[in-house]
Nucleic acid binder design. Structure first.
Lengths: 192, 192
DNA sequence: CTTTATTTAATACATTTGTATCATAAACAA
DNA sequence: TTGTTTATGATACAAATGTATTAAATAAAG
């Protein structure tokens, strides 16, 4: 009956356009008009896929989470613990253009989430998952009794490195970032 | 000649009102009208102190930096290196209401700075200072050859802990935050 | 071809926003 | 008092923004 269009696929295309606008102009300039322009459609047409700007933002956050999940799922793990941990954590670090876009966008959504309960819910989801991932890594790497402390330390290090690499890519480039993280894991592995 | 008003003092009062609005409603809702209301003056009157919203934002960022500087300057240092380091780093960690307000506001300014060159300049100033502070701490605590790596690690840990304490205060409360940081410094102090 | 459901897009509208204008008030100097 | 400078705040205005409305185009089914 209708026009031949893959609805979900179109939604993802719009969300990716939303990402690009946020990266290029910031979240305050991520207006429905700017996003529609980037997606090469009209505002009215875009509204057929997202009934409100907030719907689009939440979908765009979920799409970041989905991409991270997919990359981690595809990883050929069960090698050395430190190597596996590096592979997993690299999926949330801005070490190439693709991850950088997603992490910059996520960073801006996170800041907006501080004063937006709907976005905060999604932000907390991701946060809980990353915390648990760090917890598992710590449990596999060490037998330290204070796993809570070590988990917070690893998780804070990962997010801190991500933010610094986003803000100061000239100082904290991908190679340095990865070596800092790997050395941390090595020290942890020798028991703290 | 004029009305009896301390111009600089008034500017600081407005900037602090700006902080409170940003914390309560987010940076997108930190409009000139909201800030004027919080400062208990009219928009026109506020414009007498700041000719534009951007001027107010940059002054408000500078005021955060000033407060951090003042607190550090007042510290009675030259005790044990780890204790001194903790005292200094605590000034940029959200461990009480005052610091939490400043760090939340700074966090939001930082995210806005990603797409605003004027704010980015101020953000980079603070960033450079904190990096150098971490560098000094590392140099005093260890003789490790890789001071660049250790500086990035400490700095990322500090900022990561700050962001997590802001986003998830229920999980990462001030006591846990401080103990994670202190243990890190202790391990560093034993040479890495 | 006709019908029907979906997609597209132009236009409108009420709000909000930053900034500008202008008149008034206040305090000190002459 | 008179004059001058600073402070205050009401009002105005153009631009931007999220959302709603409405009509047209498209593709498949009858």
């Amino acid at each position: 009956m209708p026009k031949i269009v893959n609805h979900e696929e179109r939604k993802r295309k719009v969300a990716e356009a939303c990402w690009r606008v946020i990266q290029k102009k910031g979240i305050e300039q991520a207006t429905v008009r700017e996003i529609a322009k980037e997606a090469k459609m009209s505002v009215g047409s875009m509204r057929h896929y997202f009934s409100s700007q907030k719907d689009l933002f939440i979908f765009s956050m979920q799409l970041v989470m989905d991409h991270v999940h997919e990359r981690i799922k595809k990883l050929p793990l069960s090698g050395p613990p430190i190597k596996d941990a590096m592979q997993v954590l690299s999926q949330v670090l801005p070490i190439d253009a693709e991850r950088r876009l997603e992490m910059e966008v996520w960073f801006l959504f996170t800041s907006k989430a501080l004063n937006d309960p709907d976005l905060k819910k999604k932000s907390d989801e991701m946060d809980d998952e990353l915390y648990q991932a760090c917890r598992l890594i710590i449990e596999h790497l060490t037998v330290a009794a204070d796993w809570k402390q070590e988990t917070e330390r690893l998780y804070a290090l990962v997010d801190g490195l991500a933010v610094h690499a986003i803000m100061r890519p000239g100082r904290l480039h991908p190679d340095l970032l990865l070596s800092v993280l790997e050395n941390h894991l090595k020290v942890i592995g020798q028991n703290v």
